[in-house]
């Protein structure tokens, strides 16, 4: 089970991020989650959005460099130890995590985790065995 993530190339200079966020705002695209990976020269803006296809097409029309990646979205109870459980499952399952980031949902009961791993289905299964659910793309819009 996986959800769609958009990555956008951001040059390290004034105004490049504004251009991207402005474009999305004008098109009424809601950001569900985001993170930035940065290096000395450039950054990668990773987004989970309400309307992935529309976001891809408007960003491309603005000459942004984008790519789409399937990632795992995990729903956690918003309580101490929830992340620890997930990390333990991944570690025991010998899963290598490329990167991850977390965000809160609209209700205080749940938090969400985005995982970039090699085998999304395997990770979903491993988590489910521990009673941890992954979300579908459809559920992204309900967060």
């Amino acid at each position: 089970m996986s959800i769609r993530q958009i990555s956008v190339f951001v040059e390290n200079k004034k105004g490049s991020l504004v251009e991207i966020t402005d474009t999305l705002a004008k098109e009424n695209i809601d950001l569900r989650a985001m993170s930035i990976a940065d290096t000395q020269d450039f950054g990668i803006l990773r987004l989970i959005v309400s309307d992935t296809d529309k976001a891809l097409s408007v960003l491309r029309s603005k000459n942004c460099i984008v790519t789409e990646t399937a990632v795992v979205g995990v729903r956690l109870r918003n309580e101490p130890g929830a992340l620890a459980t997930v990390v333990k499952v991944l570690s025991e399952g010998d899963i290598n995590v490329e990167y991850m980031y977390a965000f809160n949902g609209s209700t205080p009961h749940h938090a969400y985790l985005v995982l970039r791993v090699n085998d999304n289905d395997k990770v979903s299964e491993l988590l489910l065995k521990e009673g941890i659910k992954c979300i579908t793309q459809q559920q992204v819009s309900e967060i």
Binding site: Q5, S7, F9, A37, T39, F42, I44, R46, I65, V66, T67, T69, E98, Y99, R116
Partner: peptide, 15 residues
Amino acid sequence: EMNEDMFSDTVSDIK
């Protein structure tokens, strides 16, 4: 100039 073929969601791929 970066292009989509060379772009990736991970820093290590781009590096």
